[in-house]
Structures are given as C-alpha cells and as structure tokens.
C-alpha cells in the first residue's frame, strides 16, 4: 500500500476494486444497463465501461429518483460497483441506493487524492475506518 487518504463514511463496509473514474454525473436509471452493469449512454464518457466490481469515483447522481433502485438492481444482478466514492458530497439517490445494497460509500476525499488515483488502479475503500488507499501503484 503506497498512498492513503481520509474520507467521510456514508455507508459502511470495505471493498477493493479497479478505479473507474469520471467527472460526469450519472443517471443510474437511464445510463447503466441493469442486467450487465455496462454504461450504455453513448453521450457519457464512461460509455461501454462495466461498473461491475469497480470502485466507481464520480461526482454524484442526476435525474431519476428511481436511480436508488437501479443501484440495488445492479447489486442483485451481481454487477454493481464494489464501492463508490463521490467527489465532493454524496447525494440522496446514491446514498440511499448504497444503504440497502450494502455498497460501501464514502465522500469528501482530499482534493489531491484524485491526482493520485488513476483509472484502473486497485483502490481499497474502508468506509468503516474512513480510509481510501491505493493497493497497486501501476495500472
């Protein structure tokens, strides 16, 4: 483990996965295929990427309030992110979806940590300890 940073716990638990990073917000109802977890909105920068078992790092959700159920569907269909990190502050749709899906959710990382975490890096989210760390320095 080479780098770690503090964060705020929203939903407890811990998980490790490859970082999937976007600066664009997500409408979980319309943008992600709930059967396979692939981003299917061709206008989103994550178009074609699977969210399954990743550590999804994104600004927050937009649009449908039903997106919380979509997060739960992803989990039940075994294609949800392993953990979610919200840049800035977590939102109500993401927080409530993660709460019933037992997906660890954290927010409020130090700004600098986004420079350190690069797409594909193995990231460990330990929400209970309010800690995010990088397991492997290379992609």
């Amino acid at each position: 483990m080479i780098a770690g940073t503090n964060c705020r716990k929203i939903v407890g638990g811990h998980a490790t996965g490859a970082a999937l990073i976007t600066n664009e917000r997500i409408n979980f109802l319309s943008m992600i295929n709930q059967e396979n977890g692939i981003v299917e909105d061709n206008q989103h920068e994550l178009f074609g990427s699977p969210v399954k078992n990743t550590v999804l790092i994104f600004p927050g959700s937009i649009g449908s309030s039903v997106g919380a159920y979509s997060i739960f569907s992803l989990k039940m269909n075994l294609c949800a992110p392993a953990a979610i990190i919200c840049m800035g502050k977590a939102d109500i749709v993401t927080a409530s979806g993660c709460a019933i899906s037992n997906i660890p959710l954290v927010d409020k990382l130090d700004n600098t940590s986004f420079i350190v975490i690069k797409p594909g890096m193995q990231v460990n989210v330990d929400a209970d300890q309010s800690l995010v760390s990088i397991r492997s320095p290379t992609v």
Binding site: L29, S64, Y69, S70, S73, K75
Partner: peptide, 16 residues
C-alpha cells in the same frame, strides 16, 4: 413515493 413501475425497479425492486 417514486419507484412503482415494474419497468423501472425490476424484479429486485419488486422482491424488496
């Protein structure tokens, strides 16, 4: 409450 259309919440929502 939102989340009543089967097309939006699916089997997992229905079971929940």
């Amino acid at each position: 409450i939102s989340g009543a259309n089967y097309n939006t919440i699916g089997d997992s929502g229905m079971n929940f």
